[in-house]
Every structure is written in C-alpha cells, then in structure tokens.
C-alpha cells in the first residue's frame, strides 16, 4: 500500500511535468491547430537558457524566468513567422518542418555542448515530507505552477476578450476578422505565449533534471499525446491528461516493466484517438475545427 502510494505520488509529480509542457502546446496545437513538433525543443532551450543565466549572470535558477520566458517568446514569434505561417494550411508539412527544426536544434545544442551534461544547482532540491514519503520541493513546485498555469490559461481563454478572440480565430478566421479580430496578430501573440510557457517550463525543469539536448525529443510525443488525449483546446484536458499519463507511466514502469512504461500509454493514446478523436474532455467534432480549409 505504501508502495502504491509512492508510485502514485511519483506519477502525479511526473504528470505535473507533462501537464506543464502540454499546457504550452495546448495553446499552439490545441487552440491554434498549428503542429509544432519543436515545442519540446523550446522547453529544452529554456532549460539551457536557465543554465546560462545561472552560470554567467549569477542569478538564482527560478529567477531566470524573467529573461528566459521573454527570450523564448521571441523565438516562438520567429518560429511562427518563418515556418508556421507559410505552412498555414498544410498540417502534414508543419509536422515535417517542425520535426526538422527539432532535429536541427537538438543537434545544434549537441554540437555546441559537445555532449557534456550540465546541471543547474538550486536551493530547492530539498526533500519535503508528505506523510511517509519524501518528495523534492522542486518537483512540488512544478506541480503547483502547472496547476496555477492551467487555471490561469483556462480563465484567459474563456473569460477574457483576447482569449475569446483566439478561440474565434481558430473556429472561423473570416468571420472573426469581420468582427474586428486581427488574425495575424492573434496567431503571433498566441504562438509566442505558448513558447513563453514552454520557456517557463524549462526554467522549472532545469533544477530537477539534468540537461541533455535530447530532452525535448523525449517529451514531445508525450506532449502531443497528452493534448490529444485530453482533448484539443481543453485546458482541463491538457492538465488532467498530463496527470493521467504521468500516473499511467509511473504504474506501468513499476508494476509491468520499465522498458514498456511509455509504450503502454502510447497504445492508450492510439486507442483513445481512434475511438474518441475529440479526446477525453474535448467536444465531439472539435478535432476537425481549424484543420478544415479556411478561405
């Protein structure tokens, strides 16, 4: 029983990581229906950015978010302008181009670091006692921020005008434009925000994980799985989907086999996709929105 609880807690905290990464992707893929396979690379860049800030600017790890997040939003803006916007109505080419970007960034960092692993020191690595278990404070922080972010994003999309504009644009660009929404600006802004969230994710993850160029690639398929599983555009879906995936992975890794821990939820992902493409929390039919040709 104690064992199962420990696995559960690990799973929930892992889920927090997945949720964190997926929330940013949810803005870009879930809401804008743009497929950015390099999203994990944005997180990775955020992590390395944090390292740079800590090492060369001497600021504490978490404080570097004030530099890293805006920097990543600029990267996101450029990514959208030069790659995503030209490929607006070609989702397969988006996958292709951003996968190419993934490979490029992954290996650019590999080349620059010559394969050395770096770690980011932080004072938050102290273990916290929960009942009989010890968990790292840094991981708790990830979970907490992910939750806050989920709530914040949900409020933004549902209650604020800019948020509604974003959703309108995806559903019917022409009509939204007739209503006075500046489509280009909305897309750029939302994409940049998604990238900034990815950067934030990187800052939070940096103290908890050792830095590797491959970390983006490791997370990206999972992030897509979470967003789809949870339901495109649904913030609750990305959040709870992330938790679910983390828990499944943790239990599968412990009770079945570590080699299969990801495979299990990949299979789950494909099954859900086939049976209910709108995901667990999504509106039926929502998965087609934004991927239909716009005139």
């Amino acid at each position: 029983m104690h064992e199962a609880l420990s696995v559960l807690v690990t799973g929930v905290l892992l889920g927090g990581v997945y949720a964190l990464i997926s929330l940013g992707l949810n803005m870009i893929f879930g809401v804008l229906r743009m497929i950015n396979f390099a999203h994990g690379e944005l997180v990775m860049l955020g992590m390395y950015g944090t390292y740079l800030c800590v090492t060369y600017l001497g600021i504490p790890a978490y404080a570097s978010v004030v530099i890293v997040a805006p920097a990543l939003s600029v990267v996101g803006y450029a990514l959208h302008r030069f790659i995503m916007a030209p490929l607006h109505s070609q989702p397969n080419m988006q996958i292709f181009a951003t996968f190419g970007l993934l490979i490029l960034l992954e290996n650019a960092v590999l080349a620059l670091t010559r394969g050395e692993t770096y770690t980011v020191p932080s004072s938050m690595g102290i273990p916290v006692e929960i009942g009989e278990l010890y968990v790292g404070l840094d991981r708790l922080l990830i979970f907490a921020i992910a939750t806050l972010l989920a709530v914040g994003t949900a409020i933004f999309l549902r209650k604020t005008m800019p948020g509604k504009a974003v959703r309108a644009i995806t559903q019917d660009r022409t009509s939204a434009q007739l209503m006075g929404v500046n489509a280009k600006r909305v897309f750029s802004f939302t994409f940049a925000t998604g990238a900034a969230i990815a950067g934030l994710g990187g800052v939070l993850l940096a103290p908890a994980y050792s830095l590797s160029p491959y970390i983006g690639g490791n997370f990206i398929l999972a992030a897509f799985a979470v967003v789809v599983l949870g339901g495109l555009g649904s913030v609750a879906g990305a959040y709870f989907g992330g938790l679910l995936v983390g828990i499944v992975e943790s239990f599968a890794g412990y009770y079945i086999d570590p080699a299969l821990k990801q495979a299990i939820w990949f299979v789950l992902f494909v099954v859900v996709l086939v049976l209910r493409p709108s995901g667990l929390f999504g509106q039926v039919g929502a998965e087609e929105v934004g991927l239909r040709p716009q005139h």
Partner: peptide
C-alpha cells in the same frame, strides 16, 4: 569537427523542403 553536425544539415534540409519543395 563536432558531434551532430550532419543532423543539423538534415534538419535544415527538412525545413527547407517543407517550405519550398512541396
């Protein structure tokens, strides 16, 4: 020179192919 250089080129080729070589 350095590890990963070839794949940087591969990645760039993929991006360019998607954009220009439909």
């Amino acid at each position: 020179y350095r590890p990963g250089m070839t794949l940087i080129v591969v990645g760039a080729v993929m991006i360019l192919a998607a954009l220009f070589l439909k």
